[in-house]
């Protein structure tokens, strides 16, 4: 049972004050300032007046920016779905591996997650570009297929045209999946690992197939883990800055890139602040949905 703070006031103060003070000073205060700026106006190169105007938000819902918001949501959503499709079987395999194998697999999944995001993105560029390994492999396959077709008396396939895998929207999605996959696998794994396996055995013993057991027993039991995996993947993907910046083309700007431009180049802090807060409200909406899922699955128990 939790104890009320009154029972041990001194201990409570000693434990609670440092983290709360830090959170207030170095998180809540900066956020509040940005929030106040979003209702302000630029009155000079470095002065901002808090006029209480909604003009920044009005500008943010203009079609140009709405489209960028919509695009960011779609890209983040696709990333999350792809991560879930790939991550679930991987998490399942890890959860049911032998203890020795399990720690190796977990390590292998986690290592890239511990590797610098910028380095990973940079490494991905080298693989995806026109003279990268994906295109080399495809060219080799293409030429072999072409040779084979001449051999059996058909027209050769012609010159291989390298695929443009970089600087477009799919590159951004590939990059986001690449970066966020461990985010999805780890919560899924911990949910699957904690799961009561006798329920799965019971389901299999009673004649359900593996797919049915997974869909009707494992997925509901792992629902909180799935929900947190989806959330942990979706949120950073939605606010991704580096991946669209380095892998995307001119039309794959996501919302974070627009925000960065307001603060670093356009020097329109109030508008950037309004965009930041809209992005944050979208994030909160996603969290609220996750909380609903969590509560529902807890109630079921």
């Amino acid at each position: 049972m939790e104890q009320t703070w009154r029972q041990a006031k001194a201990a409570f103060a000693a434990i609670a004050i440092p983290p709360l003070a830090w959170l207030l000073l170095f998180f809540i205060v900066p956020m509040t300032v940005i929030w106040a700026y979003s209702f302000g106006e630029n009155t000079g190169p470095t002065t901002i007046d808090f006029t209480g105007t909604f003009a920044n938000y009005m500008r943010a819902v203009e079609p140009l920016y709405l489209e960028i918001f919509g695009k960011s949501l779609v890209v983040a959503g696709l990333t999350t779905v792809l991560c879930l499709i790939v991550g679930f079987p991987v998490a399942l395999a890890i959860a049911f591996a032998s203890p020795r194998m399990k720690s190796w697999l977990l390590l292998l999944i986690m290592l890239p997650f511990w590797t610098n995001l910028l380095i990973r993105t940079y490494a991905l560029i080298a693989v995806l570009r026109e003279q990268g390994y994906v295109n080399f492999t495809l060219e080799w396959l293409w030429n072999n297929a072409s040779g084979l077709m001449t051999f059996v008396g058909l027209q050769p396939l012609g010159e291989y045209e390298p695929l443009t895998l970089l600087y477009n929207n799919s590159a951004v999605i590939i990059g986001l999946v690449y970066v966020h996959l461990p985010f999805m696998v780890l919560p899924l794994y911990s949910a699957l690992d904690r799961m009561d396996r006798s329920l799965m055995e019971a389901s299999l013993d009673l004649g359900a197939g593996h797919m049915r057991t997974i869909l009707l027993v494992v997925v509901p039991l792992a629902a909180p883990g799935i929900a947190s995996g989806v959330l942990i993947t979706f949120i950073p993907a939605l606010g991704a800055y580096l991946t669209p910046d380095l892998l995307g083309g001119t039309d794959s700007q996501m919302i974070a890139n627009v925000i960065e431009r307001q603060f670093k180049r356009a020097n329109d802090w109030p508008f950037g602040a309004a965009l930041s807060f809209l992005l944050m409200y979208l994030t909160f909406a996603a969290i609220a949905m996750q909380a609903l899922v969590q509560r529902r699955s807890e109630r079921r128990r």
Binding site: P19, L23, F26, F27, V29, P30, M31, V33, I34, Y37, L231, I235, P236, L238, G239, Y241, A256, I259, E260, F263, W269, G272, A273, S276, F277, L279, M280, T283, F284, I287
Partner: peptide, 19 residues
């Protein structure tokens, strides 16, 4: 307490810039 985890990096970044 959960906010810094979930707030998009870019938002925290600009907040820190202004702060």
């Amino acid at each position: 307490m959960a906010l810094p985890i979930v707030v998009p990096e870019i938002c925290l970044g600009v907040a820190m810039l202004v702060f």
